[in-house]
Design a protein around this nucleic acid. Sequence first.
DNA 1: AGCCATGCACCG
DNA 2: CGGTGCATGGCT
Length: 254
Amino acid sequence: MTDSAAAVPRPDNGSISAVTPAGKALAHLQATYLFEKTLTTSDANGQGRIVVPKFAAREYLPSLDITNGVTVPCCDSLGQKYTLRFRYWVNNQSRMYLLEGTQEAQAKYKVQAGDSMVFGKLPSGLLVLCGQHSSADRTGLPNQKAASKVRSAPATGKVSGPALSNGHPRSAKRQSTGTGVTQRNAQGNTALEPLKVQDGVFRAIPHGLSLAPSTVSSLSGVWTATLNLAGELYVAHFDSQEAALEAFHAAGAD
DNA sequence: AGCCATGCACCG
DNA sequence: CGGTGCATGGCT
């Protein structure tokens, strides 16, 4: 077993697996796990260009018609916003997808070749990313080949059967073609379609970070109130700051 | 055959 | 000289 295998034919659940730090961070934000890309040397060479595996690109990112690409609003697990650019290159008879403008995030999480970037989707539909430091594999040195040695993350491939339309039943093996992607998806809700979840209902976050403070913040027009009540985390989304604050205070936070 | 990492040419 | 986009080669 090389490793996990995104091809595990066993549908468990469609939600986030909060087994990794990144997973927990995403869970805290009530984000849906999208996919994870293990950074290659090319991805981490400082240019901020990350090659996005075709499957992930077509499945989770906006459809692209023009090579110029589109800008994709994004934030990291700590709330910082980024404006990424999703585009493609014509390659052979196909396309090669890239996500540009990730250098800042890479630097922030201090990820390098061999580490990975986990992508998720907030309830609002906003793309969220989180750096995932690979465990101390490269004892020796982060040489180029370091990345080649690293396998994809053990993100417990839980695939909820139906979502894999375009089917990409390959497991992540080698780094070359196998790519370091791990993908899984909640049943129907694919891509970045703006889900309307600003219902103002506080939901408990099972694996919420205990260190998360009670806050009210906004991301792309969606206001989020996070409550840390005696260690239990609750999150609710609103359309306006007013609504968020009102509920926030009504819930006893300050 | 398809996919992707990366080298590299070209353009600013 | 650095960045962008392309073309090639390695691998599955």
